[in-house]
Design a binder for these strands. Structure first.
Lengths: 131, 131
DNA sequence: ACCCAGGTTGACGCATGCGTAACCGTAACG
DNA sequence: CGTTACGGTTACGCATGCGTCAACCTGGGT
């Protein structure tokens, strides 16, 4: 049953994260495993959320941003449209940031490459002199 | 005289950094202003170094990396070739990292764009239903 | 004499995302 | 019955690059 709840270790193996990470996410209210005494049982919902969390991180969202997005997501398609629009906007903002980052990175790469080329030239000349 | 030493404020204005930043760089041994009693006098050399520091930051080097690069730079073309080669290698490594970052970023951008497009579709459908 | 601007030295704070002890409880295994 | 093994909690540490007080000193102008 893929529906069965999972222990912390099973979660760690399934998603390649540490127990510390899962507990941390729980503390930050990103996950809500069922607490059976001391133990945690991660539900299907937790797994879905964790998947989104890891994706969100890849996009460069902060955990706090992700938490808000997940909350909106939970309100679901039934929730007020305004919130969906908010999530959409947040994602677009982030997208714009990522593009800006990429452009700056590309420019920096070019600049660094130029410098390296220049340095390589000088190194060659020196080698010739040394020879 | 562009050779004249500069006060901390003049440096701040010239490079758009805060006094805190300059003192921080001095503490980290990236800059070596002349200490006249309590005051600092930033020399031409300090200005050249700061320029390189700010460029280095743009390339994503850590201040510690930059410090090492500057030290090598100070050894100058007279210093042992090995060190120049080291600096060159360090820069190439960083360049490779930057390219990898850019590729990952580009991939993430595509993924996020797809998601947004998908979401936009769903939002449209909902709007139609709501209408 | 007095005051103010601007510089100086600590030293703690912040933001992020966990890592890493240190210590405790419990259940299973041999 | 002792020993792992796994899970739990608390809490400090880390890395980066400064921001932000707090409190003091110093030179110059009035």
């Amino acid at each position: 049953m893929t529906d069965a709840n999972m222990t912390i270790r099973e979660m760690c193996d399934a998603f390649e994260v540490s127990p510390r990470t899962l507990r941390f996410y729980e503390a930050k209210e990103l996950l809500f495993p069922i607490r059976e005494g001391q133990k945690r049982w991660f539900t299907k919902r937790d797994r879905a959320r964790l998947k989104l969390i890891l994706e969100g991180k890849r996009f460069g969202f902060s955990l706090e941003d992700i938490r808000q997005l997940l909350d909106l997501y939970d309100q679901g398609p039934n929730g007020p449209e305004i919130q969906l629009a908010q999530a959409y906007e947040l994602a677009q903002k982030r997208l714009a940031e990522m593009k800006a980052e990429r452009d700056e990175l590309t420019a920096a790469i070019s600049a660094l490459q130029e410098r390296l080329a220049w340095a390589a030239e000088r190194l060659e000349k020196r080698d010739q002199n040394a020879a």
